[in-house]
Structures are given as structure tokens and as C-alpha cells.
Nucleic acid binder design. Sequence first.
DNA 1: TTGTAAGCGTTATCAT
DNA 2: ATGATAACGCTTACAA
Lengths: 335, 335
Amino acid sequence: MKHVTIKDIARHLNISTSSVSRAFNNKYDIKKETRELILKTAEEMGYVPNPIAKKLSQNCSLNIGLVVPEIINGYYSKVVIALQEFLTEKGYQVLVMQSDENEVQELKNVKTLINNMVDGLIIAPTAGNKNTSYYIEKYNEGYPIVFLNRVSETLKASKVIFNNINWSFFATEHLIKQQYKKIYHLSGYKNLCVSSERAQGFKKAMQKYNFPSENYKIIETGLLATEGMNIIEKLISSDDIPNAFFCVNDMVALGAMKRLKDKGYKIPDDVAFVGFTETRTAELVTPQLTSVKQPTFEMAKKAGEILLNKINNPNSKTETAIFNGKLNIRKSSIR
Amino acid sequence: MKHVTIKDIARHLNISTSSVSRAFNNKYDIKKETRELILKTAEEMGYVPNPIAKKLSQNCSLNIGLVVPEIINGYYSKVVIALQEFLTEKGYQVLVMQSDENEVQELKNVKTLINNMVDGLIIAPTAGNKNTSYYIEKYNEGYPIVFLNRVSETLKASKVIFNNINWSFFATEHLIKQQYKKIYHLSGYKNLCVSSERAQGFKKAMQKYNFPSENYKIIETGLLATEGMNIIEKLISSDDIPNAFFCVNDMVALGAMKRLKDKGYKIPDDVAFVGFTETRTAELVTPQLTSVKQPTFEMAKKAGEILLNKINNPNSKTETAIFNGKLNIRKSSIR
DNA sequence: TTGTAAGCGTTATCAT
DNA sequence: ATGATAACGCTTACAA
């Protein structure tokens, strides 16, 4: 159990610790044979460098902090996987913390990670923006931070975001072209910027195609399947079911669809559905759900790239990457 | 950006660093007023203790390593969340690494975490057992490790597992009592112990209720929805569809169910389904899927408890916790 | 090419 | 109650 240290090796070979250190870092002058001897002995003695000590003396941790709203959400699992893959390969370790869609927890996470001396942070914020000013303050002090998703295009910081407005416009347009005449948008929380952007895209399409205002509606729900179910109950009881729903995400769409099916509605004949941010479940339900797919892996990787660039080059400029997606049309929305 | 250190405070107040340290640790003698003065000044100066230095000098990291097969799987997301919650409260930080169902990656993860001086490890192994001997070697050296799930009851190490045999027996029994006469089990990989245990439970039920051997079958598939879909294609083409399927997990069940529905089969009238390890999707499909629910949060927490106990009391004995679940009966399996 | 020694930010054992 | 000081394991000027 006792860790072998650089000193043990030095003593054993009757050389100095600096030589041993050099042998491992291989960037100062050192004789080839000495180096090889050291490495060989180290191997034999079962030496493993102590990263903690390394961090302390180098004042960098080779750790990156990643803060996500929730890991159980397939989208963010993908983000975690993608960043782990990308950053591990670059020699970094990813510390993941999840905020549980809670701003207080999120701020705690960020502070914990900063205290643990991560070299940089990737933050996918939860709804609300109470913490933004704190993050921006850190950002302006030069702390390497990249925001991912759920931040406004106008935020003055490096970020990777999805073109929500355009793609919800396209998704809505698809429903319009399928001749659905009365279309409702189930939106997420108002204070979540991806929600409001998707609502904007929806509205834009409604206006471009001159929908009379009684034929469309934006209804604030949430992000969970149960919330999709609940809103359907309400709409049914007020006898207000449209021909089609465009939903802020797949979970809401799936919940709403489920409840309508249970009540005897036929999908897509009675009511059509389009979701957003494709989940694995979209293909497992009947009918399969039309949805906007985001290039999640690419977006996460891009965030990693921007962050590493900032870490290695502190004067690098603020960088914003905006991604486009793809509308996967399936049976839930075609006549 | 420059971190304020204990030294800065000491210099500023014209006292020694040891006093400052004492003020924070509050376990050595120190005068109340000095302590308060120090804490106040520290606050003002924006002092934040450096955990890296602390780790180095205390030779413990207050980090726990958690290795899971894949984070995108809802089951393991829950494990991550549960352990994060439990361990954070106890003052530990959780480093999550995922193995991507790959034994080589898993071994790498474990070694990375050990090198990073985690105080203990919770390992939820992937399929296969190439690495087991390495883990057991470490375990026997006294390294605190707790295995979670997917390990055999006979493994000589601390572990938290689910009673797969009994609960797949109950799940199968439920189908039998619903009068389904021909029942197939879609099993996972043979070398994954939870798969073989669930297959055992299935077989036990078949034998107890004297099913003739032509009326049941164990078919090895995998753990993914696509694998459930594929096996249905095969069975249809060989005209070999039973009255009911008991599946190794929900994803396989959902995939199989989807494909059968697409082919015009009625669920549960033509074919019934029972899954395992309830997913959120189980309630979103039509009909809703009957499934065995595991007490995931409790199991994860128990693993954390056993681990902390081992860390704080190195002589504590090997401990095994076996959990029971609940069969949530839904429409996919009732006539 | 190698060794010496200071330093990273703490804790903890001595003295005082 | 407080202060010096060594120690944790490693890196890195600087000297030799």
C-alpha cells in the first residue's frame, strides 16, 4: 500500500531526486542511460507518480470541471461522454457535477470545482440566471470558462449553442406544410433561454405563414414527460385540442402523446407531434416521434476545444460557436 | 486570479501560518479572539483553502472514484446521482468515469483513479470479468473497493447486489399466473452475471410450474433496444413467436415490443411483455411496460456507506448487501 | 549532465 | 496560546 516516491528511487540508485524527476519529464538534459536506468528501476519498484504533488508544484491540475443540469437526461449524458472522450485523450481528467436543475446547487458545484483548482470549466446552466453575473465576473478575471447550451447568444463569453430559433422555425414549418391548421407549442420554462428561443422560432413561422391568432398558441409547461401529460388533461377538459403540437423537447412530446393516445386520439391523424432534441425513446414509441436532432457530440467537443485553447493561450479571444441540426421526420407528423 | 494563501493572511496579521491553519481546523488550542480575527480577515482577503495542498499534506484526497459501464443508461445515472448526493454530504467528492461497456477502458479508469489517489472506489463492472483478478488483488492489499451490481454473489469482496434470481422468478411467475403458456426469455450477454442470474430465475420458474421444454426458451440477445428489435425479426421469419416475453431489461423489451407492434401484433393480447430494471420510458409507451423496479438509490447509498466504513476503519470486514425489488404490473402483461 | 535547494500551500510536531 | 519548522511528493532555477 505504501506509495513508492521519487525519493525512494533516488536513494536506491544513489542519485538526486531531480534526476529522477527529469527522467520522467524528459524535457531537461539527462543522459540516455541514466534515464533508462531510472525508468527501469522505477518500474521495478512499482513507482507511480503522485498527481497531487504534481498539481501542487505546477499549480495546475489537468482537471476540467463539467457542470450539467442533470445526468439522467440523455442529452447531457452524451455531453459527458463526448467531453470525457475528447479531454481524456488530451491528458485531462473530467470532473462531472450535476446541478439537479437547481441554481443553488449549481453555484455550489462551480465553487467546489474552482476550489479544487480545475484548470477550466464547462458550464451547461440550469434554467434561471441568478448565477450568471458570478460566472461572468470569474470569466472576466480570466478564468477559463466555456458555456454550453442554454445561454443567450448575447452573453459576452465563450459559448457553444444551438440555433434554436431557426430549427424550431423549420420544425414548425414542417407541420404547416403537412397542412395542419391549428398548431400549439408546448414551451418549457419562460426563464430558460432555449425555451424562449424555441418559442420565438415557432412564432416566427406562424407569422410568416399568416396563421390567424386563434389558430396558434404558446403554452408554458416544463421539460418533463409528466408535465406534457398534465397539460393534455387541462386542454381536454377545456376542449381545446389542436391538430398538431410542436414541443420544447421529446419528453414533453412523449408525455403529451401518451396521454392523448390513452384518451383515444389517433396520432398523427387526430393530432400530430414534433419534438426537439432527439432522445433514444423517440424511436421506441408508436408512432415514432419526429424530432430535431442536435449534433450533441460535436457541440460538446467544440466546447472542449475552445476551453483548451483558452487554457493554453490565455489571451485567446471570446469565441462563439452556433450549431445547426437536422429534422428527423417520422410517423408522428405525416399525414 | 492569484490565490490568497495562509501565508498572506499570516503576514498581513503578523502572526504565524500555524495559527492561521489552526483557526481553520479548530482542533488545536487557539484563543477565541485570535481565531475570530483570523477568520474575519481571511474572509475579507478572499481566502479559499487549497484542497490540493491539503491532500498532499494529509495524504488523503477526500475523493471517491466511481466507475460505471455507461452513464447514458438511466440506471447508472441514478447511481451517479445517488452517490454524489450521499458522498458530497459526507465531505467527499465523486469522480465519475464511464467504461463504455469496455473492459480495457474500465481497467484504465480504475488505474487513473487510483493514481489520482482516490480514497476508495466503487466499481460497477462491465460485462466480462477479465479485470476481476486485478481488482481483487488491490482489494486484498487493503484498497477500499466496493462492487456494485453485476458481480457474482460468490465474489470474495464487499459488494451491493440485487437478488436477480428471485425477482426474475417472480416476474416469470406473474406471466405464468396470467395463463401465458409459451414464454421466451430474451437474455443479455452470457458472460454478464446479471444476465445469467435472470436467466436462472426464469428457468427455475419454468421448472417449478412444469413447463414442457418446447414451451419455453432462453434466447441470448444483448442489452440494447436494437437487439430486441433484431431478435424479433428473426423469430418472425422462423414463425416462432410465443405468448409472452420476459426480457433481461426494459430496453430489450421496448425494442422487441416496438417491432412486434409494427408488424401488427397486439400487445398484450397476442404477445405479453415483462421487462427488468425499470426505465422512465416504461410508462411512456403503449401499453405501459410491466417491469421489476430495483431500489437503485438505496443500493448506491449502501455501497457508499460500506465504502466509507472501510475507509474510516480499515479493519472492517467484507460486507455483502443483497437487495430486493418490486414488480410493477402494467398493461403489457395482463389479459 | 547532474546535484542542491527553494518552492508549491497545507498540516502537525515540537518548542516556547 | 502561539511560533518555528519539518514534512507531504514533486518541479525547476541555479550552481557545479
